[in-house]
């Protein structure tokens, strides 16, 4: 799971979580990473079940899922797919679309542009864990920006997962923050041809872990920060 950081003490974090939960400020997500084809039936059975109980959280209604104006009788569900792996497009998207859900792709912005022959090496160096069985030998393992734009056009959501899959520290220097936030925002905008409003760090640091990063996220146009335990509205 990696090293998780809290902005304050354990008890302070627990208090905010208990208060938030008891007020009903709850978002339901299912976190995925790689989605290899040999698990397709497993994913399909799960979304068949989810479809009976939940309504999809999409880019169009995300704001209402967050702010309490959610209008559906069923609670919302947000399938989150981390890293931008190619098998998300090939395996999971058809399952999501069969059952009417929107996927939310949290992509390190530098990853799609890495050359196919370097992607596995890049992944290994940046804690981007590919599945045990390589289903694309000799080929790319990351979604292309063309595919990402197509998914966005079909109603799926995107978030910026930093530039290099970065693990935020309290003392991360400003020039690194700039690359992981501003450059990443620019790459996401160029790749998708639209801005993204959601950001998420590797290991899910929340606001307060590095206040300079928080300010820079807002400056770069991000409105929401996804973390281990929270979705925080920044602007």
């Amino acid at each position: 799971m990696g090293e998780l950081r809290l902005p304050g003490s354990f008890d302070e974090t627990l208090a905010t979580l208990v208060q938030g939960l008891s007020a009903g400020r709850v978002l339901r997500v299912v976190n995925f990473h790689a989605t290899p084809s040999w698990r397709r039936d497993e994913y399909r059975r799960q979304f068949e079940t989810y479809a009976r109980l939940f309504a999809p959280i999409t880019p169009r209604n995300f704001g209402t899922a967050f702010d309490g104006t959610w209008a559906e009788a069923r609670p919302g569900l947000m399938p989150v797919l981390f890293e931008g792996f190619r098998d998300n497009v090939d395996v999971m998207v058809p399952v999501l679309e069969e059952f009417g859900f929107a996927g939310w792709f949290f992509v390190p912005s530098a990853f799609p542009a890495v050359g196919a022959q370097v992607q596995r090496s890049f992944a290994a160096a940046h804690m981007l864990h590919l599945p045990k069985r390589d289903e694309y030998p000799g080929e790319r393992v990351v979604m292309t920006w063309d595919e990402a734009r197509d998914l966005a056009g079909r109603g799926h959501g995107f978030a910026c997962h930093s530039r290099s899959h970065f693990d935020l520290q309290p003392d991360t220097p400003d020039h690194v923050l700039w690359d992981e936030i501003h450059t990443a925002a620019t790459e996401m905008r160029a790749g998708l041809e639209q801005a993204v409003e959601i950001f998420c760090w590797l290991h899910g640091a929340e606001a307060g872990v590095n206040p300079r990063a928080d300010a820079m996220l807002t400056e770069a146009g991000f409105r929401y920060l996804f973390s281990n335990f929270k979705v925080q509205r920044l602007a």
Binding site: T16, L17, G20, L21, R25, V26, L27, R28, V29, V30, N31, F32, Y43, Q46, F66, D67, P79, F226, F229, K230, V231, R233
Partner: peptide
């Protein structure tokens, strides 16, 4: 897939 609750 790992279900999680997040606090808004």
């Amino acid at each position: 897939g790992v279900p999680m609750f997040l606090v808004a």
